[in-house]
Design a protein around this nucleic acid. Structure first.
Lengths: 152, 152
DNA sequence: CCTACATGTTATTATAAAAATTACATGTTG
DNA sequence: CAACATGTAATTTTTATAATAACATGTAGG
């Protein structure tokens, strides 16, 4: 299949809303930045709204975060758009008549759960604010490098 | 797309080989347990062989582990069959003309790397032996429960 | 009030990464 | 040399996803 970019796109939306706070931001405007279509953006925004991360009203381009970006974690966004979908998938369709088949997979599933928890624990430490900070850091670095090029 | 079950299936293969050590195990036999076809099993085994986790010779059903199951980690197997494929995917196709587009995604990528490392660190602590132990634990529990049912 | 434009939502289609399958070359063993 | 095994490449099918289309609903300005 295609790889899911829901989490990435949802974070993109939130960063966009946060950095453009005060302005009237339409789903069309966000779609332009993500290079996709407005309907897909609205679908993700519906999930974010449902999870209580943003507010919005029908007919108005007034979506905004419900709390500060440093109070929104990557895990919050993951839950909002991916729910309980795991990062790793065990093989649900092994041979039930072969005892090894199903029980090996169930054993693997137990350990996948541990890996999932480790990943989610890390997700919980990363905030939207951190992503925005990193973004500005990249912009500054870029500006600096362009400057040097001009000087040299 | 479909979800990848390569890691799960590769672990299945290794557990099968380990538990059936000494016996002549064919790709057809493993395929029966995983409920798939021998060619797919052989493709995964080629990756495992390439990573130095198993040995095998063409024409002979003599595949075996190159080291003890407690020296093979989930990360070893992940690298063997998934290479450097990440668990999370950032949106590589955002609008390059929109500065926000690409730099937000690159910032997200930085943090995805941290999540990846947390997951891989955990993968490194889980051995094939642990999975096999868990498997036998499940079998014992099952046997015990069946026994109780017979008594009651 | 009505037009332009926004969100909200559902249904359908297209895309792409995966497993499944086919085919056959190559190697081994009795 | 027959039966059967691995090794490997090419093709087809499957399926989770994004893309798209369509339209109901809501808002606001003229």
């Amino acid at each position: 299949m295609k790889y899911s970019t829901k989490l990435s796109d949802a974070l993109h939306i939130l960063a966009f809303l946060s950095m453009g706070a005060g302005q009237r931001i339409t789903s069309a405007k966000i779609a332009e930045s993500v290079k996709t279509n407005p309907a897909y953006i609205r679908q993700l925004m519906a999930a974010l709204k449902n999870a209580g991360l943003i507010t919005s009203t029908q007919g108005q381009a007034n979506a905004e975060l419900t709390r500060n970006p440093d109070k929104i974690t990557v895990l919050d966004v993951y839950r909002a758009v991916e729910g309980n979908k795991p990062l790793l998938h065990w093989d649900i369709d092994t041979n039930p008549e072969c005892g090894v088949g199903i029980y090996v997979q169930l054993s693997i599933a137990d350990f996948y759960q541990e890996i999932q928890e480790a990943a989610e624990q890390k997700m919980q430490t990363i905030t939207l604010q951190a992503i925005i900070d990193q973004y500005y850091k990249k912009l500054e670095k870029l500006a600096l490098e362009s400057g040097q090029e001009i000087i040299s």
